[in-house]
Design a binder for these strands. Structure first.
Lengths: 359, 359
DNA sequence: GTGAAAGCGCTAACAC
DNA sequence: GTGTTAGCGCTTTCAC
């Protein structure tokens, strides 16, 4: 790592100018073969790796796209790095307590989609998961390093987003469409929930139903609730007859609310605003020996993997998470190619997936 | 996005020099408050976001760490972006065929760990999942943009790695220790498998056992096999009495090999080199109505989430994937702080997790 | 086909 | 406390 070699070093060794070195790397065909070979030899000999920063600066384009998510909130951050190893391997019995609720599937899958699409278009991907107060600083920092930025809705103040958007294209992931001038990519939350609830109320003819919503500030959640209400309306059920509980998208909260619901009355169906919540409800139902789907129908939303493995398996609405990531990157590159484009708002289709909890 | 403002623009508007603008951003306390306010006002007014590239170039440090993994191989890359949305939400029944085997848990978790640690140390993370031929070009490219690079073992040629390592610290993830001068972070594969196999052969007194290995070129796999052999030795079992099948870490292959094994004879235990393979074996066993663990014991390795949800749940050796990611970043930053450090080789502890498939 | 030279936007001495 | 001035390592006209 003794002072990385530069174009100058390579040029000197190959007896050419730095311009020629640059050409060999950017457009090899514009250089005579013998010259090219000499340059490449020097590159190898010196262990030359071009500076991406210098390049980006000169070319006024980084070829990097940024992705910002809210962090895996501080929970495990404090834990010190475990050390040692040795031969003594502990043997433990998994009684269920080992389960770390790291079902951050949403993040993972969107990221994967973004990575795939970025790669296809010749961009690198820079990810940041910000937490706490430094979040805004992080976003600002990353914004200075990329050609475009995808941000999960509601994780950053509109003010900062607007600030950043003056420099690079910004696309907002998930959430509802807003006429804020940003590009927007989301899934069909409302229609999805409406179709699912329609199935519950229609195919099963349920009328005694309860709804568990997500956190107040989630636009996704708001759309789902709207979809649910639309389904109620279609089924001729009076909205005020249906209790709506306010959850927070976690399994734990799902359990708590499940308990509360059952303490009072056992409904024929529990429709949840996301899968985690639904899984929590299933936990409670199972603990009480209440049969699903025989006694109670349960549904979720998202399509996380855990729902395929739960007992019983979970009926849900599947969001195309990988596609969301891809679409976000696509939106950014499209705008990069043509900055005059009007703000796009893409809504990706979802799919109701029927499983055992509500066949 | 009309030409992003620069320090010069801010300086002009705030009636100060560009140095002062830089100071306000880097070390605010070194500037008089009134000046600072004027500068910040200009920053906001102009929508100024500092160029990370220019900054990195001048400061000779990017504050970015790179992470390279082999790609989600081309499988889904071709798929066009789905369009439209509308109200017609399809309703499908999940009969199991919907399962996309995207259990890329290893990648996801390591990434999460890296992300957490990078953030703590003030670095951003750049990820690249390379595929196909352009892999090496990608690695080279990313190497030019970061202060340090973590690479999964066996995904890049040693030659390129050496080339890149002349510019920045490189840490190799997983795989065996090699005296190649790179920093190295891995899990305790050998001892882990040895402890697990010791449990199978010891606690269960099994002698009629079969082993399913992974791909030939996986160093992790080689260590596990060594650990298995050590356990055989300890149990006084002759190595040549135990069949070893060569798998490829996929569930599908696990099924195929499972079929082959059963066609001939039903062993008391099947020890697999990873979880996916073991899940494949469980599939076959279940299909044939062979009881686990009553008739056959099955074990895996890795500790992926799917193993917690399988029927029966899977006994395995849990690798600390998140910790691996953290350790990798830690190793890089340590070397950045002190480049004279000798090459480190960290081996993280693993844990045998007993579940239903081999209690 | 190749070289000379002017930036790209910022940081970091070094003066004042 | 603030301004001046070199670079940082590359790309990119524009000559030759």
């Amino acid at each position: 790592m003794a002072k990385a070699p530069t174009v100058y070093d390579v040029a000197e060794r190959a007896h050419v100018s730095i311009a020629t070195v640059s050409r060999v790397l950017r457009s090899p065909d514009a250089v005579r073969e013998t010259t090219r070979d000499r340059v490449m030899e020097a590159v190898r000999y010196l262990g030359y790796v071009p500076s991406g920063n210098a390049r980006a600066l000169a070319a006024r384009r980084t070829n990097v796209i940024g992705l910002f998510f809210p962090g895996h909130d501080d929970l495990d951050i404090s834990a010190a790095l475990s050390q040692s190893a040795g031969a003594e391997v502990p043997i433990v019995v998994d009684d269920g307590s080992l389960v770390q609720e790291t079902e951050n599937l949403y993040f993972d899958e969107v990221l994967r989609g973004a990575e795939i699409e970025a790669w296809r278009r010749g961009f690198a991907l820079m990810v940041a998961a910000g937490r706490g107060a430094s979040r805004e600083a992080l976003v600002n920092d990353i914004a200075g390093r990329v050609d475009g930025l995808a941000v999960l809705a509601r994780t950053v103040s509109d003010e900062l987003l607007a600030h950043v958007a003056r420099r690079i294209p910004v696309v907002v992931l998930a959430g509802s469409e807003r006429d804020d001038g940003f590009d927007h990519v989301s899934a069909s939350n409302g229609p999805g929930m409406r179709a699912l609830a329609g199935h519950v109320l229609g195919a099963h003819g349920v009328r005694d139903v309860v709804y568990i919503a997500g956190p107040e500030d989630s636009p996704d959640d708001a759309e789902r609730l709207d979809g649910f209400r639309a389904a109620l309306h279609e089924a001729g059920i009076v909205e005020s007859d249906v209790p709506v509980y306010r959850g927070d998208f976690t399994r734990e909260r799902g359990r708590a609310i499940g308990e509360r619901i059952l303490a009072y009355h056992t409904p024929r169906a529990v429709v949840c605003s996301n899968d985690q919540t639904a899984l929590g409800v299933l936990d409670v139902l199972e603990a009480r020996g209440i049969r699903v789907p025989d006694d109670v129908l349960v549904t979720g939303f998202d399509g996380i993997t855990a729902g395929r493995h739960s007992r019983p398996t979970l009926t849900t609405v599947h969001q195309p998470m990988v596609e969301l990531g891809r679409a976000a990157v696509h939106a950014i590159t499209a705008r990069l190619d043509d900055p005059t484009l009007a703000a796009q708002s893409l809504t990706l289709p979802v799919q109701v997936v029927l499983r055992a909890s509500c066949p």
